[in-house]
Design a protein around this nucleic acid. Structure first.
Lengths: 118, 118
DNA sequence: TCCTTAGTTCAAAAGTTATTGAACAATTGG
DNA sequence: CCAATTGTTCAATAACTTTTGAACTAAGGA
């Protein structure tokens, strides 16, 4: 069970820009960047949209080549395709993320802090 | 007769990305970047779309803060708002343009060379 | 003034994207 | 096996975007 992803050389500039031109998806990318290395499942993003709608936005990000989704049990572990994006469009992701970090208009993931189980 | 433009601090990241996520508009921006310093009028871009449609795309770019349009007689002289974009989103425009220059899928402005009057 | 050039505006049509809820599938833990 | 968890798919709808042609404005040159 693997999900379809474009190869690095198939990643399209206008498609990536179009996909990032949505506040929900930009918020997802910003959060992924802030947790780089930590694979996150889809439920992390339920602050941003309904489950169904997240499935849609996460599929857009994956199909554009911005994220990778690995199936682990019933979870999809989502990561940024940073190395692929950096090699395809040098500097682009860094500048987008830097700008997104400073954007107060973007919705936030996890307004309340992560709870540790007791 | 001046056209409405956002202030630098009103330029929105998702709106800019969304506006650039269109091959016609990305081709316009790429061409403007290749002719930086030279103000171009709208007719330069008629290779890319009909006059009416260009008016629409150029308005989108202007309203997003990507370009500036100055009214000179019956012409609108279009320039990239590079300094404003660089200050608002450092590195973003450079990386987008660098990637766009290498993108063979984008439509070209002026497939034939500019004709000098005899 | 009349004609041309440059570009806009408007309304309609076509196309695309986002959002929803209900139903579904697959894995895991009890 | 059963129930819960995780996420997808589907069809419908709503909302937005793109494209078009016809009509228009405004400036400039003959």
């Amino acid at each position: 069970m693997t999900l379809p992803h474009p190869n690095t050389d198939q990643i399209s500039l206008p498609i990536v820009l179009g996909v990032l031109g949505d506040p929900t998806r930009l918020a997802i990318v910003r959060y992924l960047a802030s947790k780089e290395g930590v694979p996150l499942n889809c439920s992390q993003f339920l602050d941003l949209a309904s489950k169904t709608n997240l499935s849609y936005h996460l599929a857009k990000l994956r199909e554009a080549g911005v994220t990778r989704a690995e199936v682990v049990g019933t979870n999809r572990m989502i990561t940024l395709r940073r190395a692929d994006l950096d090699s395809r469009f040098p500097g682009l992701l860094d500048s987008v993320i830097a700008a997104a970090v400073d954007d107060p208009a973007l919705p936030a993931v996890g307004g309340h802090d992560i709870e540790m189980p007791a």
